[in-house]
Design a protein around this nucleic acid. Sequence first.
DNA 1: CGCCTATTTGAAAACCGTCAAAGTATGTGG
DNA 2: CCACATACTTTGACGGTTTTCAAATAGGCG
Lengths: 226, 226
Amino acid sequence: MTLDERIALLGQSITFSSLTEEEMVELAGLCRIRSLNAGEYVFMEGEEPDWLYMVAEGRVKVLKHSSQGKEFIISFFGPGEMFGEVAIFQNRPYPASAQAVSELKVIAIKRDDFHTFLRNRPETVFRMIHVLSGRLRDAQVRLRDLAAERVEQRLARVLIMLASRLGPVLPFTRQEIADMVGTTPETTIRLMSKLKEAGIIASSRGRTEIVDEARLRELSEGLQPM
Amino acid sequence: MTLDERIALLGQSITFSSLTEEEMVELAGLCRIRSLNAGEYVFMEGEEPDWLYMVAEGRVKVLKHSSQGKEFIISFFGPGEMFGEVAIFQNRPYPASAQAVSELKVIAIKRDDFHTFLRNRPETVFRMIHVLSGRLRDAQVRLRDLAAERVEQRLARVLIMLASRLGPVLPFTRQEIADMVGTTPETTIRLMSKLKEAGIIASSRGRTEIVDEARLRELSEGLQPM
DNA sequence: CGCCTATTTGAAAACCGTCAAAGTATGTGG
DNA sequence: CCACATACTTTGACGGTTTTCAAATAGGCG
């Protein structure tokens, strides 16, 4: 992959889009590209944090396993989005695993190189703080939801959240949705079947489309249980 | 409150303890002090983020309300700890409310003043990133726990987490613990009564002491249900 | 077609929340 | 010092939501 291609990929990122031409060249020079097949892990929870990653092509899911081996999906990331940054900034093991969902290309930057690069780029540092703050905000909303809302509302909220990031057509299996909502595939299926009957969503194998977002929003507020 | 007193308070914070004498003086000059009684709110979810706060004396709890009005406690903060920073960095409304648990004194710094102060303090900025990263890491652990662990294990983990920050004697009511675990006071009482009988904790009104942390850890792993 | 994976459905049980009521500590004012 | 108010704690019974287990069906791909 050429330098120009790497620069183009970096430009997809909100964090780096403000860099000057020279800075882009410098950063691109620090990058490695890794290609992975679906199911392969970019890193595993507990590994030493040597690299910061950004998605170039495809999607990655960041997840944690429970004590009984069930997995919880913390987030999906697509092109231009960064992951692994918590470990990098704390210089402690990755707190979660990152797994390729589809064919995946990621840009990897060595921890020390990145820290050096940031040293005199306050603008970039503030953008990273902005990203971290946004993730913390999202995490707090989900914490509250998991602690206090029932599955039906959590499901509605996850679907809304995904639709706001990816558009109305969502490429996820029932299992993946269940792992984001924090429930079982069976419960997800039962609830989504009701949503389907009510004409709120349409869905087939590994694909869900939000048809009536307004009603989904009502459900997510718990105003009127189905 | 004198400038020197404010400087002493700022020095309690990990984030600011690395500042030079002059920087401390400058920052202390930007601070206001607010005193609140137990139960009063420092800020409410949804308000405009004009101030960054740090606890000077007492404790504050940061919480969100569910759609049914139940509250979920995101975190407690004590002297030297910062809160409200997510809103400040994003310049969006506070994502949660902050309420005084006891008599409380907080240091408040105006958003714009703080941003100006940070502009040429890369060291301080990196410390803030470190704090944010740690909170995100903690949030991810709790997300996984809420999504995949049963109440008994979540309770054990919350107690362990609190003990690691505050020592073995915890000044919380059953209600507060329930609001951190994401359950009801009744369930909390039932489980804690069992922990008491088993000699794992001792507790009285508004106070819980971890006696046998090793066994609590076993419970938190779900190795042997009680 | 045949295999693999995803989806669906059913029945039973576990977990936990809700509701109601009573008991117990803490502090306040008379 | 006692009576009372208040808030926290405890207990029991019940019911609903959700998980678990099991089995069957359906869709996609070589």
